[in-house]
Structure formats: structure tokens, C-alpha cells
Amino acid sequence: MSQSGSQRTTLVYLHGFNSSPESYKAQVLRAYLETSDYQCNYLIPRLSYSPAQVACSLSELIEQQLMLGPVALIGSSLGGYYAIYFAEKYGLKAALINPAVKPYTLLTDYLGENKNLYSHERYTLTEGHMNELLAMDVETLSHPERLFLLTQTADQTLNYREAVLKLKGSPSWIESGGTHEFSAFTRVIPAIMSFLDIKKRQ
């Protein structure tokens, strides 16, 4: 018997490159949800520097959660790129915050040894990783209306116009100024939750 009417959505937050579940937006969103009446579960998986490993681990996580109920995604920067891939793969809605849409070219500047800003893990980024990213590229969005673009024009890391072009068929929230972190992020959380069909308790 279906219980879809009572099932809580699982909201999965995908952090960016060299980031972690301890990142600013991930924790701001956690605190917001803990003090609001939104009915959802919230997961922030720690993403590997290996795109192939991300593809494997997140597929497993999402498939497990879909057995329990609806799943929605929020992706920031590189996490936005991953969110596009998984939204396409599983037919999910996703909110994309200053998303990277061509990380396989952007991250070539980081080839070689890196250190995660939060965990301090050291790793080597290779051309092979860029090929793994390219393999996850969604060239044509089958349902752009399932993706919500949130971007600020003064993003110092990414050219926001690339995301606007990629997601030209998607609803969008485009602000002048701002930062790659997305200034005053809390302001847009209600719009994100509304788009993802996550409702408050009655």
C-alpha cells in the first residue's frame, strides 16, 4: 500500500570541490532546518575527490533513499554539476547554487597535489579525474524545469553566464553582485524548499 502522502522527502546536499559536510552553506542549511517546521530528512555525504567514486557512492545512497520515499538535491559549485547528473539519472528535482557546469576544464588549474580545506586530506588530482568528470556531463537536459538555478553575478570562481546558458530552460534566481559562496544564502532557502516541494508541518 502506498504511503507517499506521509513520506518525508530526503534532502541531499552535495558540497563543492575541496569542501566538506562542514562547509558554510551545508551547516547554515542544517541549522535552518533544525529550527524550522520543514518536513524532510537532511543528508550531507562527504564526497570523494574522485568523480568516479562520487558517481558510485551517490548512486548507492540515492537508490537506498528512494526506497524509503522522495529524494531532492541541493548542489553547490562542483556539487551542482553532480546534482545535474543525478537529477537526470533518477528524475529528481535539484536546486543548483552557483553551479560549475564545465568542471572538467575549470579544475585543470588544480591538477597535481591538493589538500582538502576541511579534512586536510592530501590527494593528487589527475587528467583521469577530468575524464571522469566529463563522463558525467549531461549535454542536453531532458527536463530543465526540474532544476532551479541560483547564481550571483560577481562569483569570483565561476563565470555565472555559463550556468545561465546551460540552464536557460530552468527557473532561475539571478542576483547582481554577491560571491561564489552565495551571499546571504539564508534568504533563498524558502524559495529552494518551495521549488523542491518540501512543505512545513500543518
Score class of each variant (00 low, 15 high):
Ser2Met: 08
Ser2Ile: 11
Gln7Ala: 14
Leu11Met: 11
Tyr13Trp: 10
Leu14Lys: 02
Gly16Val: 02
Phe17Glu: 00
Phe17Ser: 01
Glu22Ile: 01
Glu22Asn: 14
Ser23Met: 11
Ala26Thr: 04
Leu29Val: 11
Tyr32Asp: 06
Leu33His: 04
Glu34Pro: 06
Thr35Met: 05
Gln39Ile: 00
Tyr42Asn: 07
Leu43Thr: 14
Ser50Pro: 14
Pro51Asn: 04
Pro51Thr: 03
Pro51Tyr: 02
Pro51Trp: 02
Val54Ala: 03
Ser57Leu: 00
Glu60His: 14
Glu60Lys: 15
Leu61Gly: 06
Ile62Thr: 08
Ile62Gly: 09
Gln64Ile: 02
Gln64Val: 04
Met67Pro: 00
Gly69Arg: 05
Pro70Ile: 00
Ala72Ile: 07
Leu73Pro: 01
Ser76Met: 06
Leu78Val: 05
Gly80His: 10
Tyr81Ala: 01
Tyr81Trp: 06
Tyr82Ile: 03
Ala83Lys: 12
Tyr85Met: 10
Lys89Pro: 13
Tyr90Met: 05
Gly91Ile: 05
Leu92Glu: 15
Ala94Trp: 11
Ala94Val: 14
Ala95Asn: 10
Ala95Asp: 06
Asn98Leu: 06
Pro99Arg: 14
Pro99Phe: 14
Pro103Gly: 00
Tyr104Met: 01
Leu106Tyr: 00
Leu106His: 05
Leu107Gln: 11
Leu107Trp: 08
Asp109Phe: 07
Asn114Glu: 04
Asn114Pro: 09
Asn114His: 05
Lys115Leu: 11
Tyr118Cys: 03
Tyr118Trp: 08
Ser119Ala: 09
His120Arg: 15
His120Thr: 13
Glu121Ala: 08
Glu121Cys: 03
Thr124Arg: 15
Thr124Val: 15
Gly128Ile: 12
Gly128Asn: 14
Gly128Val: 07
Glu132Ala: 11
Leu134Phe: 09
Thr140Pro: 08
Leu141Ala: 11
Thr151Ala: 15
Gln152Thr: 08
Ala154Arg: 04
Leu158Thr: 01
Leu158Ile: 13
Leu158Asp: 03
Asn159Ala: 11
Asn159Thr: 09
Tyr160Cys: 06
Arg161Ser: 10
Glu162Gly: 14
Ala163Met: 13
Val164Gln: 07
Leu167Ile: 08
Leu167Asn: 07
Trp173Gly: 03
Trp173His: 12
Trp173Cys: 12
Ile174Pro: 03
Ser176Phe: 05
Gly177Leu: 12
Gly178Pro: 04
Thr179Val: 06
His180Gly: 08
Phe182Asn: 05
Phe182Gly: 03
Ser183Thr: 12
Thr186His: 09
Pro190Glu: 01
Met193Ser: 02
Ser194Arg: 15
Phe195Pro: 12
Leu196Asp: 03
Lys200Thr: 07
